[in-house]
């Protein structure tokens, strides 16, 4: 199998896993679900790190000999921006999910359940 075909296998099977897992999520938690999935879709940070971590000297971008890609700094800024955007998602998504999920607590009966008066 070609690497792409293996990727397609992983993709299709993961869609099925996702389908079954997500239907199990209680509707009351659909907003936090969206915030959590938002945070984990920022897994693209892996790609961002691979761009931002490249040593630009190895890309042959330095010489202004018409490679067309502009100075190395622009490349690094691009990587920096990609990492920052993904990181905003990770921190924002997880923190806000934690805040929301912490609200869903069954109170240890802050209200005393008095017997019916009628």
């Amino acid at each position: 199998m070609s690497p792409t075909m293996i990727g397609i296998y992983v993709f299709v099977l993961s869609c099925f896993v996702g389908y079954h897992v997500i239907w199990g999520v209680t509707p009351a938690l659909h907003t936090p679900l969206m915030a959590v999935t938002n945070a984990i879709s920022a897994i693209v940070i892996v790609g961002a790190i691979l761009v931002a971590g490249v040593n630009p000297d190895q890309l042959g971008l330095v010489g202004a000999d018409g490679t067309g890609f502009g100075p190395p700094l622009a490349f690094q800024l691009l990587g920096f921006l990609a990492v920052s955007l993904a990181a905003i998602n990770i921190f924002g998504g997880f923190v806000v999910s934690h805040r929301m999920l912490s609200m869903f607590k069954k109170k240890p009966k802050s209200v005393p359940s008095a017997p019916p008066q009628k």
Binding site: V10, F11, C15, G18, I22, L33, I40, V46
Partner: peptide
């Protein structure tokens, strides 16, 4: 494959 699988989870969600 981590990105492919995770993206598919979020996408189907």
């Amino acid at each position: 494959h981590l990105l492919i699988a995770t993206g598919a989870l979020v996408g189907s969600s």
